[in-house]
């Protein structure tokens, strides 16, 4: 296989992972935080697919793992958005700074 080497793909996925982490820590809107987490999960997907294709082409473990991650990320987003809607009903806001009743 010629073309893009594995390290380039790993660089992209690792960068994506830490961009997601940065977004999670700096954003204050809960939906955006959820999107940041999806970014992190997608970087894992890229990792799995890349490793599977470049290093272990005779196996399917990585591809299967990716499918399960996508499914579970959808389930997680569904529950998280339900919780956020419920939080919006009581707080009238989806800013994490407003959900500070419990501290220390």
């Amino acid at each position: 296989m010629t073309g893009v080497p594995l390290t380039h793909i790993l660089f992209v996925s690792t960068a994506l992972f830490f961009i997601g982490m940065y977004g999670l820590f700096t954003r204050r809107n809960m939906i955006t935080m959820l999107m940041s987490i999806e970014l992190m999960l997608n970087s894992v997907n890229i990792n799995f697919v890349a490793f599977n294709k470049y290093l272990f082409p005779d196996k399917l473990d990585g591809i299967f793992f990716t499918i399960f991650i996508i499914t579970i990320a959808a389930a997680e987003a569904a529950v998280a958005i339900a919780i956020i809607i419920n939080l919006y009903r009581s707080h009238q806001s989806i800013d994490v700074e407003d959900a500070t009743e419990m501290k220390f």
Binding site: A80, I83, I84, L87, S90, A99, M102
Partner: peptide, 11 residues
């Protein structure tokens, strides 16, 4: 408090 707790747990 309950919804705040759930939000913290899921995130």
């Amino acid at each position: 408090k309950s919804s705040e707790a759930a939000m913290k747990l899921i995130i």
